[in-house]
């Protein structure tokens, strides 16, 4: 995935079954953001794989004051890349293990 300067990782181990996953997001390289972000630390949140879109969550983070409006796309992309990887793992890895 492209280096967006924003890191998104699983906040808990994925059991491959739950419809919601816990993710943790933090800024690794603030220079890649257009707006100034506060020193937020790591933001943990749950993401509903089938109901939500990364764009919704990114917008909520902007609304909550974590990020500037101009960075909503880079936040959404960072979440989208991680979610895509998790879904890829679920489709490819889990069937092989079970």
């Amino acid at each position: 995935a492209e280096d967006t300067g924003v890191r998104v990782e699983l906040a808990e181990e994925d059991d491959g079954r739950k419809s919601s996953i816990a993710l943790r997001l933090w800024v690794e390289d603030a220079k890649k953001l257009k707006g100034k972000s506060k020193d937020n630390g790591a933001i943990e949140f749950t993401f509903e794989l089938e109901k939500e879109t990364p764009d919704d969550v990114a917008q909520e983070m902007v609304d909550a004051g974590f990020f500037h409006e101009s960075d909503v796309k880079i936040i959404a992309k960072s979440i989208r890349d991680r979610v895509a990887l998790i879904q890829w793992r679920r489709e490819r890895i889990w069937p092989m293990l079970h």
């Binding site: 890191r7 933090w26 690794e28 390289d29 937020n40 630390g41 790591a42 933001i43 943990e44 949140f45 749950t46 969550v57 909520e60 983070m61 609304d63 909550a64 974590f66």
Partner: peptide, 27 residues
């Protein structure tokens, strides 16, 4: 812990905690 902050927005709960030093990229 005392460094953890909970922010509610649009029905979602964000839990904010410090990033462990080891997870920060070397600049």
């Amino acid at each position: 812990n005392s460094f953890t902050q909970v922010v509610h927005s649009a029905g979602r709960r964000f839990i904010v905690s410090p990033v462990p030093e080891s997870r920060l990229r070397e600049q």
